[in-house]
Amino acid sequence: MVNKATSESKRPKAHSLHIGLNEVSAAHYEGWTGPLAACEFDAHDMAALAKAQGIKSSLLITKKATRAQVLAAIRKAAEALVSGDFFFMTFSGHGGQIPDVSGEEEDKLDETWCLFDGQLIDDELYYELSRFKAGVRILVLSDSCHSGTVVRARVPAAATPEQRPRIMPRPVALRVYAGHKAFYDKLQSDVAKAAGGRVEDPDTALANVTVSTRLTAIVKKFSPSLILISGCQDNQFSMDGNHNGAFTEQLLSVWNNGGFKGSYASFHARIRAGMPPSQSPNLFTLGPAAAFLKQAPFAV
């Protein structure tokens, strides 16, 4: 007879974290609050999806979505999960940029998530995710804008009161960086030192990059298996809506309350096929993710 306690202990654990910000603190963002409408809905809906899959979830909504709280939640999961376990994280809010002071190119920009009291830079996110144990599966869904270039290819398409681009405007980004330069420069320096040297490719953490030979060294150092699906390509915008962001709305439609049958790869393809040409969700992986890509989405 199989011991029930032993059986339970062998079952993979699953934790999820859902972050949604309809605004940010004017005190940190130089008077800008970046009002959005659907990000909190996105976080609640993704938490409900996780719960339906038997995943223990937590929510960080707007004022609670601080740098300290988000980092603490990621670190708690990294400490608790072991090989075979599953960590699911979603972010809905503005994407931003700061000048990269730890990389190789002087004019390079680091992508960020705009949390309530400050930006989480991609250097930090990459480093925190790299601290998960080998064999842990990590799924990150990011419904926000990020760009590695100073000048975008075009202005946002279909920008209406109901559809707002989820990006911190460039002039605001420059003011925020100027007002907090020492803070962000030190963050990048500290992360580089903690990672054992220069962070060669921090942009992979937020996944709005194209595959390049520069990623090879980073992949070799990344022990967990990561799948990251983002709301748009590097030269596009993720659009807000009234109830969900455009990416999250399409994802939930394809998921169909668990009716979707297929792999992560086909899940991404179906989501992308249903989006307009102006917003094409990106799929990126780090670590040994080939087997993970073949699994059913959100499966523990």
Rank of each mutant, 00 (worst) to 15 (best):
P12Y: 10
E23V: 07
A27F: 07
P35C: 04
C39S: 02
C39F: 02
C39W: 06
D42R: 03
M46L: 15
A48W: 06
Q53Y: 03
G54E: 00
K56D: 15
S57R: 02
S58W: 01
L60W: 10
A65M: 02
E79H: 13
V82E: 14
D85G: 14
F91S: 06
Q97R: 15
D100I: 03
D107C: 02
D110A: 06
L115G: 00
F116S: 05
I121E: 12
D122M: 00
E128Y: 03
E128R: 02
F132V: 10
A134W: 01
G135E: 06
V136G: 05
D143S: 11
C145L: 00
S147M: 04
V151S: 10
E162L: 05
R164Q: 13
K186Y: 08
D190F: 07
D190A: 14
V211E: 13
A217I: 04
V219D: 08
K220W: 04
K221E: 13
S223C: 04
L226S: 03
G231M: 05
Q233H: 02
D240E: 09
F247S: 09
W255R: 13
S263E: 04
A269N: 13
R270M: 07
R270A: 13
R272I: 05
A273Y: 03
A273L: 10
S280P: 05
T285E: 08
P297D: 04
